[in-house]
């Protein structure tokens, strides 16, 4: 028996936890980690759907999400280093003073 409802419930709970982390935490490293959790939950939903219809498409989309997460995290962490060198802080409120 395929636990499809539980799978989508798990994906939804993990995604909601990621949203809570993005909204509640002020440390930018925690915000990036919460984004990783949200991407992972979205990929989990795709894999659950792929297992439901027994097609490899869900896993293929998860691979694309994986590549996107890798690119996002490399640029994001480079920006975190730049932010820390400029503001000496990891607080996301510190960037709100930034004016282009």
């Amino acid at each position: 028996m395929l636990p499809i409802r539980e799978g989508f419930a798990l994906a939804g709970i993990l995604f909601a936890l990621g949203i809570i982390g993005v909204l509640a935490r002020r440390n930018i490293i925690f915000v990036l980690m919460s984004i990783e959790v949200m991407l992972n939950a979205a990929g989990l939903a795709f894999v659950v759907a792929g297992a439901r219809w027994q097609q490899p498409d869900g896993q293929v989309v998860f691979l694309f999400i994986l590549a996107m997460a890798a690119a996002e995290v490399s640029v994001g962490l480079a920006l975190v280093l730049e932010l820390y060198h400029q503001y000496k802080s990891l607080d996301t409120d510190a960037i709100s003073r930034m004016r282009g």
């Binding site: 691979l63 590549a67 996107m68 690119a71 490399s74 640029v75 962490l77 480079a78 920006l79 280093l81």
Partner: peptide, 17 residues
């Protein structure tokens, strides 16, 4: 497209550093 995205991420991270 994913390979282009990864190349963009590589160039972006290198540029920032």
């Amino acid at each position: 497209l994913a390979s282009m995205l990864l190349l963009g991420g590589l160039v972006g991270a290198y540029h920032l550093g």
